[in-house]
Design a protein around this nucleic acid. Structure first.
Lengths: 140, 140
DNA sequence: AAATTCGCAACCATTATGGTTTCGGGAATC
DNA sequence: GATTCCCGAAACCATAATGGTTGCGAATTT
């Protein structure tokens, strides 16, 4: 990773759900996230590709949730915004003359996928609705 | 992440274990990984900090494993080479005037840690010794 | 002394990242 | 229809990370 888009995406979706059904502008959202509206629009446009939000131009426009917050998991969000997998293989292919170099990529690909799936299964346990219930000291 | 150091570290340790007790030079290792010896030394020096390997200067010198390959898990290796956590929070702190902005970081920190641990528990199931047994079609 | 090997610093090109500005176009309102 | 609001897209920027490379010194063996 090494980027904050997953975090910002979760923040934005939580805010959209928290603020109810009316549309929020990218400028308002940027005020909560503390960044630039264009950064918010970039991330929201990837969430729109995943059918999680919709945008509306013009006065009174902005961004709205398209899915029940109880049905949006952190895994869904990661899938929408994540480009690269968590673990990368070699930048240049290893030496196939070496027994280790020949096989290591295929072996690691399986292990990395397994670890990635373990992580995603954990993320799947959390929904946006749950996060909202914790905002404002909800669980205290 | 977005780097290949974890992969290279696993590759190097597997090679060290595979080639038996004698020391391997960074140049030889670089030949298997297909990169520059300095890149190998950089990664091995972080593994040395974790007491996984030792280096020896001079002719006949090089790098040796310090731990039984059956006792080196992928989780150990990740711990040694990983700098940043898998998931990063906001680059600038959110707006604390907003109920979501005020609490989201603490809430996400818990969720991210849980996901990270799920991933690490999975990585812990694999040892260098297991990887060696799969090299050369070991499981076929 | 000579050869080998690591250690470390410096440097480089490439890429990712978050941020910013600018301009155009669609949409609601007056 | 004119104005205002808001998104869309492109361009640009500074910063940082990454992998790679070179150079040289120090340690070690022969």
């Amino acid at each position: 990773m090494s980027n904050t888009r997953f975090t910002v995406a979760i923040h934005v979706l939580t805010l959209l759900a928290y603020c109810g059904p009316e549309a929020l502008t990218s400028e308002f959202i940027a005020g909560s996230v503390n960044t630039n509206p264009v950064v918010i629009r970039r991330i929201l446009s990837t969430l729109r590709e995943a059918k999680l939000v919709a945008s509306q131009a013009g006065p009174g426009g902005g961004w709205q949730l398209l899915r029940d917050p109880r049905k949006i998991t952190l895994r869904d969000i990661l899938a929408a915004v994540s480009g690269d997998p968590t673990f990368l293989l070699h930048s240049a292919p290893p030496n196939i003359e070496c027994p280790v170099g020949r096989d290591i990529q295929a072996i690691l690909a399986r292990r990395f996928q397994s670890a990635q799936e373990a992580m995603e299964r954990d993320l799947e346990r959390t929904t946006i609705a749950q996060l909202i219930s914790e905002v404002g000291g909800g669980s205290a």
